[in-house]
Design a protein around this nucleic acid. Sequence first.
DNA 1: CGTTGGCACTCGATGATACCGAGTGCCAAC
DNA 2: GTTGGCACTCGGTATCATCGAGTGCCAACG
Lengths: 332, 332
Amino acid sequence: MLDQRKASILRAVVEEYIDSAQPVGSGHVAAAPGVEVSPATVRNEMVLLEQEGYLIQPHTSAGRIPTDKGYRYFVDTLVGPAPLGQDAAQQVRSFFNKAHGEIEQMLSDTTRLLSDLTDSAAVVVGPAHEQALVRSVQLVGLAPRVALLVVILSDGSVEKCTVDLDQDADEVTITRAGAHLDTHVRGRHLDELARIGSSGHAEADAVVRAAIGAATGVGSSDDQVFVGGTARMAGAFEAVETIREVLGILEQQLVVVTLLRDVLDRGLSVAIGSETGMAPLAECALVVAPYGIEGERAGTIGVLGPTRMNYPQALAAVAVVSKRLGRRLSEG
Amino acid sequence: MLDQRKASILRAVVEEYIDSAQPVGSGHVAAAPGVEVSPATVRNEMVLLEQEGYLIQPHTSAGRIPTDKGYRYFVDTLVGPAPLGQDAAQQVRSFFNKAHGEIEQMLSDTTRLLSDLTDSAAVVVGPAHEQALVRSVQLVGLAPRVALLVVILSDGSVEKCTVDLDQDADEVTITRAGAHLDTHVRGRHLDELARIGSSGHAEADAVVRAAIGAATGVGSSDDQVFVGGTARMAGAFEAVETIREVLGILEQQLVVVTLLRDVLDRGLSVAIGSETGMAPLAECALVVAPYGIEGERAGTIGVLGPTRMNYPQALAAVAVVSKRLGRRLSEG
DNA sequence: CGTTGGCACTCGATGATACCGAGTGCCAAC
DNA sequence: GTTGGCACTCGGTATCATCGAGTGCCAACG
């Protein structure tokens, strides 16, 4: 799409802008390694790059800034798979060596890791338990008319919901209902709950029906989302309004999962500015990667920073962490 | 401590500053209701208030701003228990009518409610299960050498942790170990785990010991923290650096619980600026309230905003929400 | 004697002006 | 086609004057 020279110039502008945050002039570009022409020639080329939409000038007689399209070309064409730095790699290794215990805690900590690595906000979407099987079902009474349904899934996650009972049920009835539920869905998919028949005991059946009612929707689409490093993100922008808007997005878990899913569904690993489809993220870029457990796609991790983020670094970090995280979760 | 007139003037300054964010001059104070003296007199009094540390001037020939001490006097002496506004009260009611299901979800939603009510960031610390009894213990195998210990407590919370086994254990052994654990701590305090004796079966005992080891520390001090409305908080400050620092604090869950606990332990319901004991919160104030379940103190809620936040509103919101939340959780 | 109006003074905020310099666009020369 | 030269642009910064909200002080007043 772009000839060799234009590409070098675009790369120089992007790289310079990423670490100076200042519009880049022809002089700096000409001085960059990989660009062997004079400032005048650079200027001529930059006019063309601007016409084609890769660069813009904030105002006449200022340097150029990459557009979303410019960043896009940069990440698609100009950025090779870079390895993670020495110490970053070490950080990842030691993190996953230490990681253990509760999965939620670990996913939450992973956002910190990613955030540390990339100096941006990080997002981790927990594994979907779509195809997880039920390991165990427990029903325990909490209060006279309230019980708690706890479902342990084969992937190690635990789902629970409170069950409001229409009428008082004694311990025995609840236990009986729980056992009934357990024997009928243990080892199967959670959906099977809906197809449970009578236990042959009227009171217990009432409890069973209440539990089934409460449990609908428990197994599906309640992806857990963990967000970390928002402070770092805030440091990357100078306009308070921008920070406010981005925080507003990150606080809406549903929006965040949808966003990540959308990006992945479009086959992208990077969404830049307007590509995110969300107006408040016009100045942001999102780098995502799915992670898999035993080959199955399970969840997603992502990094959210300003459009002038360090893409090679972010891509490398996201790639490595998603791979290690998947491996770690596959072990059990 | 302050005579009637000084108090009125201080109140006028605080109230004016809270909604203008601008240094307040003698003219505005004199015009305020409750102050019936001339600007000249106000000036004389303000000099004294400044000497006593209730006010400061950002620079000569500017209006005055309350100091932390000034705000402190305001909340201690000048602010009565204000009722919540009509629509706010309605909002709280409808929230708690709709609230149901998982406790975590509800606590998380509560941060949104508080944040909406006060236009600040909100924090909710989940109930401590210090004195909760064990309702049920489950041990399920996940992978060859990994099991999951799930403990259901009488307050409806579910704790879990993965258990790494030294050697392979078959389903039967794990089930046996689980049953052993269950029969010995069910109905008791989680601490009893440590005192469990042998089950009379060597392999199962190994699993039991591993589970006990993994479970230490599970029941204690892992308070859940929910934070919401950080976007609103960001809107209240103009310096990006301040926002960054405050976000940094809010991201550290342990720091947040400690902070709230400290404030409550000192018998305060409001901590202003340096009273928080955290340098990054010098420009922040924290309004907290404990909530209780069936009379027992269970958790804490709080609102974090700028020192020039609307204290009467925040105090009212925090009081009402903590009461309703406690009542809601007591029901089951 | 406390309170008040008057008044000179302070000082940040605002706006006009000049200047600087990075950067551009264009053109002629190589 | 590339390059050096050059006039031009225009945002950023500094300087300076002005404005006005607000102060401190003082003398007058009830």
